[in-house]
Design a protein around this nucleic acid. Structure first.
Lengths: 229, 229
DNA sequence: GCAAAAGTGTTACCGGTACACCCATGT
DNA sequence: ACATGGGTGTACCGGTAACACTTTTGC
């Protein structure tokens, strides 16, 4: 028989999730932040978060927050790590799990974001953040870079169809360095995870650049590394 | 002024830590497990865990559990990930953070472990585990492998001094494959993170093998990768 | 024709891998 | 002398990086 409430002597805690929301626009990796509405740290920038509810996993809570924040469901979401220093939040004892998500910046609900004062910041110009949110962002970026190293990302950040130059720029933005265009193209080609379409992008160059699209059902285990550290 | 208890409307949860304790012995990577003492899952094997207390971070809780479990302090400890499915623990709603630690198996307190029925299992022969503990172990092993890929590990698992063959065997155990002895030695040498001592191990071969020791103050960022996936 | 972005080709080099080979020593 | 584990040398191969070069097309 189950032990009758063997746990009740222990302490309970508020559990929050904080979402590091990445987007890509104008050749920059961007981060969605919100202004804190009360002291302490009034006016400082903050990740969007929320409290875990009864009967809800942390992952579910993060999905709920994202739905309420950017109006999107079924977007990429991954756990970053737990933050539990007793004094991390002066407002009370709150243990938080950071998640990071990737969204197509042009597909999110801009009005919803504006309602709460949300603003996109370039990853290279992140302002001071409340509590330990800077560490959450830092760890999230490392996770994103790691992911981008071992598999070709872009599906969640770029439009459905995109040019290799756009993908190259995305990688430049994520790693804050410049990948050789020729070598990048060859590497991408060798992965065989993109389909080249018949259509071309014509607004950025006279010659035009072929559009590409991610294949369906990619086996991520077959990938070579893309970036060499 | 601080908002007066803006959080109180939210739910609170029990927070636990579960420790994936790795050790190395007889050319095998091992895992320390404990038998569960009550239903459900009576007699099944389980990670050693404990509840987070007031004023304590999850990391501190994990250190406390390790001190009580194997009698060791100041050992390697790293967060693996949070587990929060509502039904994960039939005994109650508990959110758990998994940690993994590396210990020198011959330095831990064997009597303390025996008291609680703890037993070491080869990583290749892990029994059925309670709840989501198998997933914790799996993720912990992946983290360990990743760590071992980007920096030379062994300091926390091997004795102070060791031979290159021992280190080679440790890597074989961690990755469950066999690294070429010649190539392994060359790679390790190129990292310049070990000092060769004047003394030799003489019990395993007639010729004897030089002992090595990790240098102090190693800058982990300078490392090459050790394992190519 | 020329500028500008797209896309290809060439070459040198480095590191991983496989494996043959030498070394030191206890029996 | 020979078996045994320790340790070194070598040759091949593939991927990376740097960069020169060609293609296409609007102006």
């Amino acid at each position: 028989m189950p032990e009758p409430n063997i746990y009740k002597e222990h302490s309970k805690f508020f559990i929050a999730v904080d979402c590091v929301i990445f987007g890509y626009e104008n050749e920059e990796l961007k981060l969605l932040l919100y202004p804190r509405r009360f002291e302490p740290y009034f006016h400082d920038w903050s990740l969007m978060g929320g409290f875990v509810q009864e009967g809800e996993s942390m992952y579910m809570a993060a999905r709920r927050v994202l739905k309420l924040t950017v109006g999107l469901e079924n977007i990429y979401l991954e756990q970053v790590g737990g933050f539990s220093e007793p004094e991390r939040d002066p407002g009370g004892r709150v243990i938080s799990m950071a998640y990071y998500s990737l969204i197509r910046i042009n597909e999110h609900d801009k009005d919803l974001v504006a309602e709460h004062g949300g603003k996109w910041f370039s990853i290279s110009k992140v302002p001071t953040l409340v509590f330990d949110h800077a560490e959450m962002v830092e760890n999230a970026l490392k996770k994103l870079q790691h992911k981008a190293t071992y598999e070709l990302i872009g599906k969640d950040l770029l439009p459905d169809v995109f040019t290799l130059t756009q993908l190259n720029n995305l990688y430049n933005a994520i790693f804050q360095r410049s990948f050789d265009a020729g070598n990048f193209r060859k590497k991408i080609g060798s992965l065989k995870v993109l389909d080249r379409l018949a259509t071309k992008q014509t607004n950025t160059s006279k010659r035009g650049a072929f559009y590409f699209r991610f294949k369906e059902n990619i086996d991520h285990n077959q990938y070579d590394r893309i970036v060499k550290f």
